[in-house]
């Protein structure tokens, strides 16, 4: 009966709508709208005491962007931020991979406990944990140095690398490693030819979960880094809170977003090609 089938179809569509509408509305109000406001703000003039100048007085212009392009310090800080984010991601990967493998290979009962330990730091306040690092690094003479920033960044983001790697590695069929060994693969060949390629999705999602937040992070460099360790996150924060130059802050964060999207798009394109090869 066409009538009833289109009825159930309509009911299905309605259910889909009811389920997806609230999160969609949430995203529009709290994500899309602020982003658009931010984009618009980057073309405005700063107000005298922060905020934005009235549209009639200031108008719309590209001053903020011109400012960023003209002064090479912004490109330098952006590049440095990418370097710190990249290095943090790499260190997290090198630390998390063996750890995740170890967790996967421990007895099933102990695994849950180990995973719990990985996420346990989240149970205490972020700032308190960073202050704890200041207490550790101070006597070592490392506080307010790039090393301290890197250590703090790695510490904060390590669980975000471990968890996706663990979920990926846990799904690997042990029979594949046995087959590889049976067919002549030694320890290294087994890792690089079987485990590593199969874990790439986990590596990529872990890397994204570390790289992107590190780029925007300002608390760690502010508390642990020296005056020379200004990163893009600090710069953006400063424009809003200290310099009260909202348009410049907005422009900087849009540039950052564009850069992140470019990196993400590039890595997605790279892995797609690899998957097909």
């Amino acid at each position: 009966m066409p009538g009833s089938s289109s009825n159930t179809e309509r009911a299905g569509r309605l259910t889909r709508w009811l389920v997806t509408a609230p999160p969609a509305a949430f995203l529009v109000v709290f994500f899309l709208l602020p982003a658009l406001i931010m984009a618009a703000a980057s073309f405005r003039e700063p107000g005298e005491f922060g905020g934005l100048a009235p549209l009639a007085a200031g108008g719309m212009n590209l001053d903020a962007y011109r400012f960023i392009v003209d002064d090479p310090i912004y490109a330098w800080i952006l590049a440095k931020s990418f370097a710190v984010a990249g290095l943090t991601t790499l260190i997290c990967l090198l630390l998390a991979y063996p750890l995740a493998m170890r967790i996967v290979r421990s007895p099933r009962r102990r695994r849950d406990l180990l995973v719990l330990l990985v996420i346990l730091p989240f149970a205490s306040n972020f700032l308190i944990r960073i202050y704890a690092w200041m207490i550790i690094l101070g006597p070592l003479g490392l506080l307010y140095s790039p090393v301290a920033v890197l250590a703090g960044m790695v510490y904060v983001h390590l669980p975000f690398m471990i968890l996706p790697l663990y979920t990926n590695l846990e799904k690997h069929d042990p029979a594949l490693l046995e087959a590889a060994q049976d067919l002549g693969a030694g320890r290294w060949a087994r890792f690089w030819r079987v485990t590593w390629p199969l874990s790439l999705p986990g590596v990529l999602s872990g890397s994204a979960l570390v790289f992107i937040p590190v780029l925007g992070m300002f608390a760690v460099p502010e508390l642990l880094g020296g005056t020379g360790d200004l990163l893009i996150g600090n710069l953006i924060k400063e424009q809003f809170l200290d310099n009260r130059d909202w348009p410049l802050g907005a422009a900087l964060s849009l540039v950052l977003t564009a850069a992140v999207l470019a990196v993400a798009g590039l890595s997605a394109a790279l892995t797609r090609n690899r998957g097909q090869a």
Binding site: D173, A179, Q181, D182, G186, P197, L198
Partner: peptide, 19 residues
């Protein structure tokens, strides 16, 4: 060790490399 024996196995689950 298995990797140095001139003996190969066809596994019950086949264990083909999915990638």
């Amino acid at each position: 060790p298995p990797e140095r024996r001139p003996v190969h196995t066809v596994f019950q689950s086949y264990a083909l490399f999915p990638h």
